[in-house]
């Protein structure tokens, strides 16, 4: 432990902040994508009400939630330019598909709410929104899985020496990244169902999302096991970190406790608690991945230290972040307070 603490310096702090921003994106933007999944899967007698509840919950906040992704990207290319360049080169294809998903999701959602029905039909846009919301998280997971697998680093070293497929396709079109992609999708859907249950005013509607949340929790569990099994061969470094490292047990216990709490809270209809527990569960999983590959950013080639920009950039970035946070945090609180679901 003391060795770990001694290894913390400016680059590690900035890397931690990037993960924190990614954490925020996953909790907020991820849930918006999850909402799109439930739009796609809306059904039963209250299908229309479900879709309306999803739309009105997302509308005021999705843009702000989306910006977390941009913050992650700009911090990454400021503080770790070579990481950004490597990912953008080797993972060009999944990033591109993810971008198309992001474009379609955002624009379809707005077009649907602002009179786009004349061009393509309200349901047409709804469908584009829902499908894009489903595809994008899978790709986000695939990208994370590819990094964790260690194959991105290997491919980057072979650019120009190996075939197109070996460099630009195999690193991400593999069992482990795909398992992580599906896992990410299930997690986002789970988060969204929990938030939507909390926000629903009609008890029947609330129950719809409660049942969906419980179902999603079961899927998350199954997919987690699958991902872990695939990781043994598909992502050895991370698998070893997740199972072998001294802190791993503690983190597993936290994740498990959060998951159980979330399910119990849903079961007993304590939605406020369920939201906190679900958010905790997802965050623990994310940090579990990060710690498992520490100190690598792109295992097994680039460590945080090796990839970091010069200290002057990191220092200025931290100052900029502090100033930005001083504006942002109160603004975000104001946003969420203004549009908080009516307490009950």
């Amino acid at each position: 432990m003391s060795g770990f603490l001694a290894s913390i310096g400016l680059p590690e702090i900035v890397a931690g902040l990037i993960v924190l921003a990614l954490n925020a994106y996953v909790l907020m933007g991820g849930a918006d994508f999850g909402g799109g999944v439930w739009d796609l899967l809306a059904g039963g007698p209250r299908r229309k009400e479900q879709r309306e509840h999803i739309a009105s919950s997302i509308a005021p906040i999705w843009e702000a939630n989306h910006v977390w992704l941009i913050i992650v990207v700009v911090m990454l290319f400021t503080a770790f330019p070579i990481v950004y360049a490597t990912l953008a080169t080797v993972l060009h294809i999944p990033l591109l598909v993810m971008l198309v998903g992001i474009v379609l999701r955002g624009s379809a959602f707005v077009f649907r709410s602002y009179g786009g029905e004349k061009y393509g039909g309200r349901r047409g846009w709804g469908l584009a929104f829902a499908v894009a919301s489903t595809v994008t998280p899978i790709l986000l997971g695939v990208i994370i899985g590819a990094v964790a697998s260690g194959d991105v680093a290997a491919a980057a070293a072979r650019v120009g020496h190996a075939s197109f497929v070996d460099v630009f396709v195999i690193p991400w079109l593999a069992p482990f990244p795909i398992a992580v992609g599906l896992f990410a999708l299930a997690l986002f859907a789970f988060l969204a169902a929990v938030y939507l249950a909390l926000g629903a005013t009609d008890p029947e509607l609330q129950n719809d999302f409660r049942r969906r949340a419980l179902g999603a929790a079961a899927v998350v569990f199954v997919l987690a096991i699958i991902a872990l099994l695939v990781a043994r061969s598909g992502a050895p470094i991370v698998a070893e970190g997740v199972t072998g490292a001294p802190w791993a047990i503690a983190l597993h216990l936290c994740t498990g406790a959060a998951a159980v709490t979330a399910i119990l809270a849903l079961w007993t209809r304590r939605y406020g608690l369920a939201r906190i527990a679900a958010a905790g569960q997802v965050s623990f999983i994310l940090w579990g991945w990060v710690l498992a590959q520490y100190p690598f950013v792109i295992p097994p080639a680039l460590t945080i230290r090796q990839a970091a920009a010069p200290p002057v950039t990191l220092e200025l970035l931290l100052i900029g972040l502090a100033a930005g946070a001083a504006i942002l945090i109160p603004s975000l609180r104001y946003l969420f307070k203004t549009f908080a679901p009516a307490a009950k």
């Binding site: 400021t78 950039t313 930005g324």
Partner: peptide
């Protein structure tokens, strides 16, 4: 990266208050 990061914060403020 630095001006881009500051721009990121400007977007954030913009998106929040547009909502």
């Amino acid at each position: 990266g630095l001006p881009f990061s500051l721009e990121g914060f400007a977007f954030f403020t913009e998106a929040i208050f547009l909502g």
